[in-house]
């Protein structure tokens, strides 16, 4: 077989492989959306789930997912920002830094179920938080920190050193320069990273089943006092999220319309992740423009 023929065979094979992938992926997306769309309705998105009968919604789970997401971000963003700043602006190349980097790498590759188990051990049991939004938010914080730290570090590194020198030469400390010049300049990239990690948090379930719990007690959406037990804002209540809900009803759900609910919930999850992706692109683009143009 001469090299021209084998060249053509190889390239044809690559075309086949790439098209197969596109077909698999398109079918996957299509299936999620098409099978999920019929289930979607305002009622479905807002009403509470039913355990034994058909017609339940995902309202509480959806709220829980967003609340948990926001709480996780509130906890993890400042930590990731501090860590990212230290790594990019202060860390010297020594054994401590390489140890820290190794640790972050390990954390990012840990199975999320292990992170969840650790959260269970420390927050649910040891600290006595029980199955609660707070326990879940801490577990998701560990899950979120490595990637967020890395993306913040990269965003800071992309800001030219001239900007740092500009601040230092005015007699400002490095910290002030970083906080008030470098971070704002890196904001579009940082926000993009935050939104992308939000998508990851939104869909995470394994880290939550033993921390935020697998039940969604009824909420009183007129009571916004976080200290009341039925208040949606109460961080100490157990909170099944959308992703956990999908897992739960498929492993042990007994409602007759479990499949329709899962389809609908999956579609909501995927559409949300898609939304986060688009938002990340949009925000990055928009802010970048606003910062550079007159």
């Amino acid at each position: 077989m001469n090299s021209k023929v084998s060249n053509q065979i190889a390239i044809a094979t690559l075309y086949v492989i790439a098209s197969t992938i596109v077909v698999i992926l398109a079918a996957l997306l299509g299936y999620i959306i098409i099978s999920g769309l019929p289930a979607l309705s305002w009622h479905f998105l807002t009403s509470p789930a039913k355990a034994f009968t058909a017609g339940g919604g995902i309202g509480i789970q959806l709220f829980n997912s967003f609340y948990l997401l926001i709480l996780t971000m509130i906890i993890s963003f400042p930590i990731a920002l501090g860590a990212g700043i230290y790594l990019n602006e202060y860390a010297k190349q020594n054994w401590l830094t390489s140890l820290v980097r190794t640790a972050i790498e390990i954390l990012s590759s840990l199975p999320s179920v292990v992170v969840g188990l650790f959260g269970f051990l420390v927050f649910v049991v040891q600290f006595g938080f029980g199955f609660s939004i707070l326990s879940g938010a801490f577990a998701l914080t560990f899950f979120n920190l490595p990637l967020l730290t890395r993306s913040i570090e990269e965003a800071l590194a992309a800001v030219p050193d001239e900007q740092r020198e500009g601040g230092l030469a005015l007699g400002l400390s490095k910290w002030e320069t970083v906080l008030h010049i470098i971070v704002p300049a890196a904001l579009p990239t940082i926000l993009t990273g935050v939104i992308l990690s939000a998508g990851r948090i939104f869909g995470e379930a394994a880290a939550l089943i033993f921390t935020a719990g697998q039940s969604a007690p009824a909420l009183n959406f007129t009571d916004w006092n976080p200290f009341n037990i039925s208040s949606p804002l109460n961080p100490m209540r157990p909170a099944e999220t959308l992703a956990v809900h999908i897992w739960k009803i498929n492993s042990e759900g007994i409602m007759p319309d479990a499949k329709a609910i899962s389809s609908g919930a999956s579609a909501v999850l995927v559409i949300s992740v898609l939304g986060f992706n688009l938002l990340a692109r949009f925000v990055g683009h928009r802010l970048f423009k606003r910062l550079t143009a007159g």
Binding site: P160, G166, G167, L168, A169, G171, A185, L291
Partner: peptide
């Protein structure tokens, strides 16, 4: 404080964004 008194301007213009 010293750098406040001894300022510096660089090779490439570096206004803040």
């Amino acid at each position: 404080e010293m750098r406040r008194r001894i300022g510096m301007v660089f090779q490439r213009p570096n206004p803040f964004s």
